[in-house]
Design a protein around this nucleic acid. Structure first.
Lengths: 234, 234
DNA sequence: CGGTCTATTGACCACTCTCAAAACTCGTGG
DNA sequence: CCACGAGTTTTGAGAGTGGTCAATAGACCG
């Protein structure tokens, strides 16, 4: 069950992929590296649940996590999938509130944890870091607002097409041109904001129209132009 | 057309209602006050439109503005109504992108404008201010995520009930207990994310059930408990 | 007193949800 | 190595929410 891994250093992450800590001085990055804790998480592990108090922020070194809210009747609404280089959990730390989302590992992950006080210390010491965090929050806010508009105004068909294109851009494709994100039909439905059966029907419709190919959970986009058109992406 | 008004000082606003500038030193507040520009805006004025480049951030001294996105077929999706003490327009400044929302005056307003470079100067000088901005952005992000879940999972009926309660809390009531926010039925629909006719039908249903009273655009909530129950507010 | 904008009501129907059943996948243990 | 069972995917049928279109009524303004 245990799987050894290299404990990553913040400065190394910053050379491979830019993290939110990029504007910290090397000393500050070393400070974080020495104080943070890292852990390996197996797929399916819940990192924290909506309503819980959390103790710090998380930064993903490897793997993918699912960030979701639980709505009426326990149905989950997926807010986003976060991948290497992404941070999460900062919202509740900053506002001093319990977590407003749950986080579950979608693909085996190595995740670092910086306790709240160290995070705050960096924010106070280095205003550039604060500005970067602010930009990050604003970017997420912009996406959330677009999502609200989409979900309120577009049909399920349009949203599914849009999300497929988005997932391809966000997670890339493997050697077979398949989107590199393993989702159950139910999860895809919870991301789109619809019923599982609707996603299934629409996917097979897309397949019949030659827009996508399906191999189990793996999805390949064939006709990007058409999907963009269906999704009303401009 | 011209209506004279007192040019407000940031430090005065901060004694009457807390603004985002509360953590600035008095010198910094005076700096902002001396450099900012203020204007009176009549109801209906568009402050900026989605896609435009903006030059700074806005802080509302008086009045109410509508912040919205334009979706497919020009239908507007209202993101929020901002009132005295609220800032807006910071997202595009921080991310260096064109505005992702439009802003229109809903109730005659006095609004101050701080140019981007002054805003940035404050962010760099005073990390406490940056943290406050970050908390603000995170609070909006939390609301946006809840909204996504609601709109994806709740029925129009539930959302309307929820939003009526929210508007009452947010904008208060006048002497007649009427919610202090003047909305057309279409705007209410664009806030809930539905068709105008649906809002009209549901409102008159709520009226027949003794949950609300309607006088033109003015709405009074009679049975808050029942509305909370309908809206699944916990 | 028109004219324009907003609100209301009715009829219709399409999209999408729910429920139910069957087919399939995959890991585990006999 | 096969059989079983849990979880997932697929397909079908039926129903209901909520959207669109159209006509009418009311409000407001010059």
């Amino acid at each position: 069950m245990y799987k050894p891994f290299e404990e990553p250093l913040c400065k190394d992450c910053n050379t491979h992929f830019k993290t939110i800590f990029r504007k910290l001085s090397l000393e500050q990055q070393d400070f974080i590296s020495s104080r943070k804790s890292c852990a390996f998480y197996k797929k399916g592990t819940v990192i924290y649940k909506e309503g819980q108090r959390t103790s710090g922020i998380y930064c993903i070194n490897q793997g993918i996590v699912k960030i979701y809210k639980t709505g009426v009747e326990g149905k989950e609404q997926i807010i986003k999938f976060a991948k290497c280089g992404d941070v999460f959990g900062y919202r509740s730390i900053l506002n001093g509130e319990p977590a407003c989302t749950s986080v579950k590992v979608n693909e085996d992950a190595v995740i670092c944890h910086v306790i709240a006080s160290d995070f705050y210390a960096m924010l106070k010491e280095n205003s550039e870091f604060g500005i970067d965090m602010l930009q990050l929050a604003c970017a997420e806010l912009g996406e959330a607002n677009s999502y609200i508009t989409d979900i309120a105004q577009k049909s399920v068909r349009e949203r599914l097409a849009e999300i497929l294109v988005y997932l391809k851009d966000e997670f890339g494709v493997d050697d077979d041109k398949m989107i590199k994100l393993n989702l159950t039909r139910e999860e895809l439905a919870n991301l789109v904001g619809t019923a599982t059966e609707s996603v299934i029907r629409l996917l097979s419709e897309f397949k019949n129209d030659g827009l996508v190919e399906l191999k189990g959970r793996r999805i390949r986009l064939i006709n990007l132009d058409k999907l963009n058109k269906i999704g009303n992406i401009y």
